[in-house]
């Protein structure tokens, strides 16, 4: 993360530390929209983090925006912060105005039809983060062009769903007019799957950092057989592996964020990072729960806010197998003689 913007990251961290405590996490877990917390994030400017300053945003670089995503994971922020950041980036990319409120991105399951009376956007997009609370931004292609469509919250029919962490993941059915001011042609492929996968990867790394710290602190505090768990070699060895995985996730997150710029993405780097971190996620969660014992299995204790998110996020925007396959196909196509040079370019 580059230097000048670190002030924003520091301030974001302070805000999360103060505001994103157990109360917020518990009420979100019980199904409430954390409206007050959102208002504070919005007042601070996070939804507009990637919008340039002259358009009223914070003008952060992609790298710094990933720093914010990392913090969102580290604090399990139960709001569509990264989704809204990206939605606003997409809107301004297409020349549409950025918007204040919470937003979600729709880029699966939609198509353009062209009946008399003009083009329409139709279809159902599954598992949309906080679809019920958000104004959607859709990206859709027809045979010739791709479009960005800014929709109102009321324009989607919501079928509610939740992921493993009780985060809203709703199906949105859309049938909307595409002839108004809210539609723009998008000249470049915004690579939304890759960008979202990179964001989830970074969020997972953030959540793992918290899990790692909690597990180590717990092992030093909890005593059995007259000494702290940390003194048992079996515990030391499994926590060492946990620390390795937390570290590799943070390095993979660096890779993912370095693979995304405003104009392009490096798919293989994002694929490697997302899938590798997704694989580590299951191990990290399992070890953390093992070390914590029964208390970690209780709703009251905060470990599950992080582990349940890992179990959800690893499957969002491409699970391990789907990304591994994509990498493998690219490598097979390049052939054995180019294996190493492909690898060094990731």
């Amino acid at each position: 993360m580059s230097k000048p913007e670190n002030a924003v990251l520091d301030a974001t961290e302070r805000l999360f530390l103060e505001r994103c405590g157990d109360e917020v996490l518990a009420s979100a877990n019980a199904g409430s929209w954390s409206g007050e917390f959102w208002d504070e994030l919005a007042a601070f400017g996070l939804p507009m983090a990637l919008v340039s300053e002259d358009q009223g945003g914070l003008g952060l670089s992609m790298g710094d925006a990933y720093g914010i995503a990392q913090l969102c994971g580290q604090f399990a922020v139960p709001l569509p912060v990264v989704e809204t950041m990206l939605a606003n980036w997409l809107l301004t990319l297409a020349g549409l105005p950025a918007r204040d409120g919470p937003q979600c991105l729709l880029f699966e399951g939609l198509s353009v039809i062209n009946p008399t009376g003009g083009r329409r956007l139709v279809g159902t997009c599954p598992t949309v983060p906080w679809g019920r609370n958000c104004a959607p931004v859709a990206w859709v292609q027809d045979a010739e062009l791709s479009y960005v469509v800014a929709l109102d919250k009321s324009q989607g029919e919501v079928a509610e769903g939740i992921n493993i962490a009780n985060e809203p993941r709703d199906a949105l059915t859309i049938d909307a007019d595409m002839t108004g001011q809210n539609v723009a042609v998008c000249a470049v492929d915004p690579a939304l799957t890759e960008r979202c996968a990179a964001l989830r990867c970074v969020q997972m790394a953030g959540a793992m950092a918290t899990i790692g710290e909690m597990s180590i602190a717990f092992a030093m505090e909890r005593e059995q057989f007259g000494r702290p768990l940390a003194k048992f070699q079996a515990i030391q060895q499994s926590l060492a592996v946990l620390a390795e995985q937390v570290a590799l996730a943070s390095v993979a997150a660096q890779m993912a964020s370095g693979a995304v710029s405003a104009s392009s993405v490096q798919t293989l780097a994002i694929a490697s990072a997302k899938a590798r971190v997704g694989e580590a996620a299951g191990d990290v969660a399992a070890t953390a729960h093992q070390v914590h014992g029964a208390i970690g299995f209780s709703e009251e204790y905060r470990l599950h806010y992080f582990t349940r998110r890992l179990w959800s996020w690893r499957d969002e925007f491409g699970n391990e197998t789907s990304w591994f396959e994509q990498i493998g196909r690219a490598i097979a196509k390049a052939g054995p003689d180019r294996l190493w040079s492909e690898l060094t370019e990731i």
């Binding site: 570290a247 590799l248 390095v251 993979a252 660096q254 890779m255 293989l268 780097a269 694929a271 490697s272 990072a273 899938a275 590798r276 694989e279 391990e320 197998t321 990304w323 591994f324 396959e325 994509q326 990498i327 493998g328 196909r329 690219a330 490598i331 097979a332 196509k333 052939g335 054995p336 294996l339 492909e342 690898l343 060094t344 990731i346």
Partner: peptide, 30 residues
């Protein structure tokens, strides 16, 4: 493995190769 797989690997072969490449890429970065 990449020699054996040839240019059109099965999904399982592609996933196995891709997984090892991803692991190596992250370790190399570390």
């Amino acid at each position: 493995m990449v020699q054996r797989a040839g240019p059109s690997p099965t999904p399982a072969q592609a996933a196995a190769i891709g997984r090892l490449v991803a692991h190596l890429a992250v370790l190399r970065q570390m």
